[in-house]
Computed example of a mutant assay.
Amino acid sequence: MSLVQSAKLNGHDPYAYLKDVLMRLPTHAASRIEELLPHQWRPSASN
């Protein structure tokens, strides 16, 4: 629930945010994981 609420507080559609993050996780570098947090997230170009 905290990710959903954080996405809302940052002006993101929670469904779009979670869908994008879950699609990126398998190939996203662990050293850049902070890019996927709601306060820094930007939708991928394919969205």
Rank of each mutant, 00 (worst) to 15 (best):
M1K: 07
L3K: 07
L3R: 08
V4G: 00
V4A: 06
Q5F: 13
Q5W: 14
Q5P: 00
Q5E: 12
S6G: 05
S6Q: 14
S6D: 13
A7P: 01
K8M: 15
L9H: 07
N10F: 13
G11A: 11
H12K: 09
H12W: 15
H12C: 08
D13L: 10
D13I: 11
D13V: 10
D13T: 03
P14K: 10
P14L: 12
Y15N: 07
A16H: 11
A16C: 12
A16G: 02
Y17K: 09
L18A: 03
L18P: 01
K19G: 01
K19I: 04
D20L: 09
D20I: 09
D20Q: 01
V21H: 03
M23W: 04
M23G: 00
R24K: 14
L25Q: 01
P26A: 03
P26S: 01
P26R: 07
P26I: 03
T27S: 07
T27I: 08
A29P: 08
A29Q: 13
A29L: 15
A30V: 14
S31N: 12
S31M: 14
S31H: 11
S31R: 15
R32W: 05
R32K: 15
R32G: 00
I33Q: 02
I33V: 12
E34W: 14
E34Y: 12
E35W: 06
E35Q: 10
E35P: 03
E35H: 05
E35T: 04
L36D: 01
L37W: 08
L37I: 06
L37H: 03
L37E: 02
H39I: 12
H39R: 14
Q40D: 05
Q40Y: 14
W41T: 02
W41L: 05
R42S: 06
A45S: 13
A45C: 08
S46G: 02
S46F: 12
N47M: 15
N47K: 13
N47L: 15
